[in-house]
Amino acid sequence: MIECRAPKNSEEFEQYYHLRWQTLREPWQQAKGSEKDELESQAIHRLIIDDKQQVLAVGRLHFIEGNQAQIRYMAVAESCHGQGYGRIIINALEQAASKFGVRSIHLNAREGALGFYQRLGYEGNTVSHLLYGTIKHIAMEKPVILNSQQLIEEVNDLVDTWYSTIPLSKAMAINITSYDYHSLITTCDLAFNKNLHNTMFAGSIYTLATLTGWGWVHCKLIELGVVGDIVLADANIKYCSPIEGIAYAVTDNENKVLELLKFKNLRNEKINVNVNVYSGEKIAARFTATYVVKPKKKS
């Protein structure tokens, strides 16, 4: 029995990177460590592991600007070729990309793997580079189908509301990448929000989380047909780790939608919202807030 998931511990990561090196670097006499780059901590990692805890296939996805992502370091153990493990890894990475609102995925395919990626819907025939001067890579791309996570009209209007009433949101280039009537996902410009350490400014993390929670309540009120003002009453944030790459703020699905039904009473009410800010799949900040909603009668 096999399982496809993220590595859970240091031992699995050790196997994960070893398979990368063994498949993609050792045949070209490259040293251990050459299978990694500076984006590892920001990326989404997937492996296939069997019931003996042996890693059989690996792949990585990292985010780039403009709702795009790139797949790299695809590797399958030589003894497992032809068993469909590569397809399983790609599907898992595409599902993760869809969760964060990615619109297109890019990759540079080795010439020998071109047919594999074409069968999975990737297109392109331009040579991107020669690795070590000998291994030809072809630039390929595939659009991501977001299924039910299409942005509703009210969510698009939400960004306009932010930009027109909160100048900082426009300067930060905060945007919504996904909303599925349960969870709201936002991101912001990478370059503008970096501090002197080249990581995301704590104030930007706080602002992104605050507006994400506010926006989730805003969308829920629209769905309930309630008109009202939303005010942040209390908030707490825990910074868990630095964010070196693109950040995504995600409302926690445990937010209780039923609590919002009380707003129908047209009284000032409170709603608690949890937001996690991610770097890759790692939670970099946990934000908890209480918003007060002041309903008002429709004119």
Rank of each mutant, 00 (worst) to 15 (best):
E111Y: 11
D234A: 11
D51C: 11
A235R: 04
L24W: 03
K142G: 01
T199H: 03
H18P: 01
I48R: 02
G59E: 05
F13K: 08
G84P: 10
Y206A: 12
L158T: 06
A209E: 02
M140Q: 10
G203M: 10
M74N: 08
G124D: 07
F263R: 00
K298T: 09
N198S: 12
F13A: 01
Y239I: 10
A247I: 04
L120W: 11
K282A: 12
N156Q: 14
H182S: 14
K36T: 14
L114N: 08
A109I: 07
M74D: 06
I90F: 04
L232W: 07
I237F: 02
K194H: 08
I152A: 08
Y16W: 14
I64H: 05
C80M: 14
T186A: 06
Y291T: 02
Y73I: 02
F201I: 04
M200H: 03
K136G: 07
Y73L: 11
S104N: 09
G213I: 03
Q29D: 15
Q118M: 05
K238T: 12
C80N: 11
A285K: 01
A77V: 01
F287E: 05
I105W: 00
E94T: 04
G59V: 06
E38D: 14
C219E: 09
E3R: 12
G121F: 09
N274Q: 14
C240Y: 00
V144L: 10
L158M: 11
E141R: 12
P167R: 10
A43E: 10
L47D: 01
P143V: 13
